[in-house]
Nucleic acid binder design. Structure first.
Length: 744
DNA sequence: CTAGGGTTAG
């Protein structure tokens, strides 16, 4: 098959006299300088090598072992011809050789195996070599030991070590370093150190092998000590120590080493920069990262994808998405990693719509998503409530991955279903996976809680404990919030007690938050207060806000004033608390105080976080703000809103305008309510989906009381299930009532 | 008669 290549390009055709073996003179001088052979070293890929091979046969050069040696060596060395193709090509030459292969050829065959995907076969080849009467030399062992390192073959490595001793080759610097590396990479640091200490001829390379071993085992102090002992440090030794600190998460120190390296006038290379970029990404060192960016440009390395991806990752992790996107768009041959980094960057910064959009572009580009892609895109679906896209991904996973054993993938999928409003599918996926990780228990328990399935949520918690999975602090947030959604005061007390005493988990702010929210809502202000006093940390804004909310439910105006003073001290510029207090005043009819707060808000120039609701239709996420008129079908939406309004009025719905803060007329206040973002999303859902289809919307804030009662009626009037996720929980509206039983 | 060891992003 090697002779079936198309005719050589003109540049490869060499007219030279055929050579004959055994013609008296040893032809090595001639061979070395023969044009066909010097071409081998310039060879770019295996295709070209085949053409040269054909040429060699034509000229009779293949009768000389020297020639074949060079070909096999090429297969072992060249990255273009290496790997599996290189190995099989080398093998075919080896097996069809006329004479006994010499040691050089045996050694290079072992070298081919070391770089292949089955390095263990190198050992078999070595045994075959011994069987044919060949004795290994100082070149054989580095290749062989490299195979043991690559294949994790510690036992075989040990045996080979005894061969080394028998041959008296342990003092050979190359063999010595290979042994250290083999032991170190197999996690046998003590053995590695024994070998290291035995030799008195150590150089920077053997030091580095030992340092790498220590560093990858997390023994940074040992690595550091050896590093200090090296008299002349080169790039690779610097890289090893820098990478070691990066892998241990000690990024600032890694960057300090890098600066020392530059001070010592050692020139960094691509590997250095990949580690440095990783350190910058993790420690948000944008300045240093930018410096590396210009270094890459100066050294014209813009086409090195590994390096550019690392740079891209740095920009994303440092939050400079604009620069990242510019770089990303400029990469001509993006790989899966480039896409993953950019998509993950958007998700990470909360720009979920852009993440989803880029994911769709990725599919159009023909690049296949992998597990990492899915793990960054699922949270975006979850956040946006993009159930259709989520279902598509589920089907994609079924087709392409064995995902049910991948715990993070399945957990992410369960979370997506739960938070996109489809708790049944979440439960189905949960039931189907094995093993069930702690995280998967946590997401299903909190998912059920959010949907108001309090009983099954708590049952699942008992089942989890029965099956021997130890709950953690996150589990208890889920359990306590479950109690909170169900108004189960006594159970919550018991779980809280059990968490502290049985599981020795010290409560965090969120645990206190659930408890205080629950106690406050139940009107148990004294107990809530003493719980706050027992906390070892100061109550945060969330806790004070939920106390304030409880004051509203129970008309506690004076207490509300005390609490809001503390809240305003903590967050003077967050309008949420002011709005809540003003609502409490409004409910008590204290309009003067309402006006005072409004002035305070205006003086400080505070803006409420705008309410935003989204709905996914045909895999496209549509977002709406209050009074939003930017949507392409805005006209139809507002016609629908008017229609809804009329029907609501007919059904006897009376808008409660007391919570509207602005100084406007009663009629306008009603308007402000009708155009709340969730109302717009629902109206769009009604006009863009078939009758009877469930409408799912997601809101970034809590749903207001007025919209809640309106939505209940809408579900009845239009005969639709409406599933709404707000900041706090899910509301399933059906036939005029809501799954939350008006408790939220 | 040719060769060999240590560093590598999501």
């Amino acid at each position: 098959m090697f002779f079936s290549s198309p005719p050589s390009p003109a540049s490869l055709i060499i007219f030279s006299p055929p050579l004959k073996p055994n013609s008296g003179q040893p032809p090595y001088e001639l061979l070395k300088t023969h044009p066909s052979l010097s071409l081998v070293s310039k060879c770019k890929n295996i295709q070209t090598l085949k053409q040269i091979h054909a040429q060699i046969i034509k000229t009779g050069l293949h009768h000389f072992q020297f020639t074949l040696s060079r070909l096999i060596e090429f297969c072992a060395v060249s990255s273009a011809g290496g790997g599996e193709t290189g190995l099989s090509y080398a093998l075919s030459i080896f097996e069809s050789m006329e004479d006994q292969p010499n040691l050089f050829i045996w050694n290079n065959m072992i070298r081919c195996y070391a770089l292949s995907s089955s390095p263990d076969l190198a050992i078999q080849f070595y045994i075959r070599m011994l069987g044919s009467g060949m004795e290994p030399n100082s070149y054989t062992f580095p290749f062989l030991l490299k195979s043991c390192t690559a294949g994790g073959l510690f036992q075989q490595g040990k045996q080979i070590h005894s061969h080394v001793l028998k041959m008296g080759l342990e003092t050979d610097l190359f063999v010595h370093t290979s042994l250290i590396n083999m032991y170190a990479r197999n996690g046998e640091l003590v053995d590695a150190r024994l070998v290291f200490d035995k030799s008195c001829h150590r150089d920077v390379v053997s030091f580095t092998a030992m340092i790498t071993g220590y560093a990858s085992g997390g023994y940074l102090d040992d690595a550091r000590r050896l590093f200090d002992e090296i008299s002349v440090r080169d790039v690779v030794s610097w890289n090893a120590i820098i990478a070691g600190y990066v892998q241990s998460g000690r990024f600032e120190e890694a960057l300090r080493f890098f600066k020392d390296m530059l001070k010592g006038n050692v020139k960094p290379n691509e590997s250095t920069m990949i580690s440095v970029l990783s350190a910058c990404a993790h420690s948000s060192s944008l300045e240093m990262g930018n410096w590396v960016g210009s270094w890459i440009e100066d050294n014209r390395l813009g086409s090195n994808l590994r390096l550019v991806n690392a740079l891209l990752n740095m920009y994303c992790k440092c939050g400079d998405l604009e620069k990242a996107r510019l770089l990303f768009d400029g990469i001509s041959r993006k790989d899966c990693v480039s896409w993953n980094i950019m998509i993950g960057g958007y998700t990470h910064m909360g720009r979920h719509k852009e993440a989803l959009h880029l994911f769709q572009q990725m599919q159009r580009s023909g690049e296949e998503p992998n597990e990492v892609t899915i793990l960054s895109i699922l949270p975006a679906c979850t956040y946006l409530g993009a159930l259709e896209t989520g279902i598509w991904i589920h089907a994609y996973l079924d087709r392409h991955f064995k995902w049910s054993t991948n715990t993070s993938l399945s957990t992410s999928l369960i979370d997506m279903y739960a938070k996109c409003g489809n708790i049944q599918s979440a439960k189905q996926v949960f039931d189907s996976i094995y093993p069930k990780s702690l995280a998967s228990w946590n997401v299903i328990i909190s998912g059920l809680a959010m949907h108001g399935h309090v009983d099954s949520s708590l049952e699942l918690f008992s089942k989890m404990v029965d099956e021997g999975t130890e709950p953690n602090d996150i589990t208890f947030i889920a359990v306590l919030s479950s109690c909170s959604h169900g108004g189960l005061v006594e159970q919550a007390r018991q779980y809280f007690y059990s968490m502290v005493n049985d599981y020795k988990i010290s409560p965090k702010l969120q645990h206190y938050g659930c408890m205080i929210d629950l106690l406050g809502r139940a009107g148990l202000f004294d107990e809530a207060d003493s719980l706050i006093k027992s906390m070892e940390m100061k109550p945060d804004a969330a806790i004070l806000s939920s106390m304030l909310g409880a004051c509203k439910v129970h008309d506690k105006v004076e207490l509300a004033e005390v609490i809001s003073d503390k809240l305003f001290e903590l967050e003077p510029d967050n309008p949420g608390g002011y709005v809540l207090l003003s609502n409490i005043y409004a409910a008590a009819g204290r309009w003067d105080d309402v006006a005072k707060i409004r002035t305070r808000l205006n003086d400080r120039g505070m803006k409420k976080v705008p309410g935003c609701s989204s709905i996914e239709v045909n895999s496209v996420v549509h977002e709406f703000l209050v009074y939003d008129k930017t949507h392409a079908r805005s006209k139809e939406i507002y016609t629908m809103l008017d229609e809804i309004d009329k029907l609501l009025e007919l059904a006897g719905h009376k808008p409660d305008t007391s919570e509207v803060l602005y100084d406007i007329g009663e009629k306008q206040k009603e308007g402000a309510l009708c155009y709340h973002s969730e109302r717009l999303a629902i109206a769009f859902g009604l006009i863009s989906t078939r009758p009877g289809t469930t409408i799912r919307i997601v809101k970034n804030l809590r749903v207001c009381g007025n919209c809640h009662s309106a939505t209940k009626l809408i579900s009845k009037i239009f005969n639709r299930d409406i599933i709404a996720r707000d900041r706090n929980r899910f509301h399933h509206f059906r036939d005029g009532s809501c799954s939350c039983m008006d408790y939220w």
